[in-house]
């Protein structure tokens, strides 16, 4: 029987939220004062309904997804679509946030998604990323995360896998704001 992974508080992994690209005041009040918000900034209720939508909404776009499954627990790191590929490891929320996710980030890449805050069994995630690097010989890894502090764990996992892998590959980190803007895009040091 395959192992069932449930979502819930991660028990055995803790990653520093101070990941490059995540604003240091991500959990502060709007005025940026010293008072910290109560509770988790990743779960704070925010309403963007007033936001003006711009751009051409006409026409239909083709999906750029070229594989199944996509959830990191479900994928085999040695699946053919990962062989020597440019892989996108995306936090679950990213695709719902970035308007042109398919066109600008998924196109031409193989993907896996994960949530570093809620997913269990994250040691397996590190092993799978390491297997991508060493066994499947992926070309590059792009990690797309939200600006909320808990999301930095996904970059930390990629760094941990890269450090323990025999091969070295370029790893890029892209941080997305809650309203879908790209806050930073930079190559990660191994």
């Amino acid at each position: 029987m395959p192992k069932v992974h449930r979502r819930g508080r991660t028990k055995n992994r803790k990653f520093s939220p101070l990941i490059s690209g995540i604003p240091q005041n991500a959990g502060r009040t709007k005025k940026g004062g010293s008072k910290m918000m109560d509770g988790c900034p990743g779960a704070r209720t925010q309403d963007f309904r007033e936001k003006e939508t711009k751009g051409d909404e006409s026409g239909k776009r083709q999906s750029q997804l070229r594989q199944w499954p996509i959830q990191l627990h479900l994928v085999s790191p040695e699946a053919p679509y990962y062989q020597k590929a440019d892989v996108l490891l995306s936090a679950d929320c990213v695709a719902f946030t970035v308007g042109d996710f398919h066109k600008d980030y998924l196109k031409g890449k193989s993907i896996a998604i994960a949530c570093p805050k809620l997913d269990e069994g994250q040691d397996e995630y590190v092993e799978k990323i390491k297997s991508w690097i060493d066994d499947t010989k992926i070309n590059t890894l792009t990690v797309m995360i939200m600006q909320v502090p808990c999301c930095g764990g996904l970059v930390a996992m990629a760094q941990q896998a890269l450090q323990s892998a025999k091969r070295k590959i370029p790893v890029k980190s892209i941080v997305v704001s809650l309203q879908g803007d790209i806050l930073s895009e930079e190559w990660v040091e191994a």
């Binding site: 440019d86 031409g108 070309n139 590059t140 792009t142 070295k168 590959i169 370029p170 890029k172 190559w187």
Partner: peptide, 10 residues
């Protein structure tokens, strides 16, 4: 492109 960066590195 990201792909080219990976190729160059390899």
């Amino acid at each position: 492109s990201t792909t080219q960066v990976g190729e160059l590195f390899a």
